[in-house]
Design a protein around this nucleic acid. Structure first.
Length: 161
DNA sequence: GCCAACGTTGGC
DNA sequence: GCCAACGTTGGC
């Protein structure tokens, strides 16, 4: 079991999109950074993922997702009309990957960045030390610290009964 | 292979 | 909207 954190602007794809999608997974695509891609390629079905909302009113952890599929070729790299088109990628030599993610639970309230910054377990976490990295692994310790902060505040609710 | 210019991310 | 951080590009 591995732990991850992914960032997204909620206008693009946020926790409410996962709530609306219910059991149906959403493809996590459009990653166009090599380090983020390499983390994404290490994802395995069943891995747990925190969803972080960036560049928005309420910045912070918005909920928990899980990995549904193994990584596969991101089809958007081949679509010229897509924002995520990559002219250098070919079906012979695809460059970018995607996985499918599904909702586990939504936070009752966003766990704000300001709070995350105060957690001692996160002082060396990539979320705080590596700005602009949009997919990262978390240690079990980092994961537990965030889950505890979510749970202790009773922020967590089951998305589906 | 170096590095300046440029573009993007993302908090504030 | 500003700007710091930093990844990418491209000239040499």
């Amino acid at each position: 079991m591995n732990y991850w954190l992914v960032k997204s602007e909620p206008d693009e794809c946020g926790i409410d999109d996962f709530v609306a999608s219910g059991d149906k997974p959403i493809r996590w695509d459009g990653i166009r950074n090599y380090q983020a891609r390499n983390f994404l390629r290490a994802m395995r079905p069943g891995d747990q993922v925190l969803l972080y909302h960036s560049s928005c009113k309420q910045i912070g952890v918005a909920g928990v997702l899980e990995v549904v599929t193994a990584p596969y070729v991101d089809p958007l790299q081949f679509e010229p009309d897509s924002d995520y088109y990559d002219a250098k990628a070919s079906t012979d030599k695809p460059k970018w990957s995607a996985v499918d993610l599904r909702l586990v639970g939504k936070a009752r309230q966003i766990l704000p960045l300001a709070t995350l910054k105060q957690l001692s377990a996160l002082q060396t976490c990539a979320l705080l030390t590596r700005p602009r990295l949009s997919v990262m692994s978390l240690t079990e310790n980092e994961w537990q610290a965030i889950i505890k902060a979510l749970g202790h505040l009773q922020l967590f609710s089951e998305a589906k009964g």
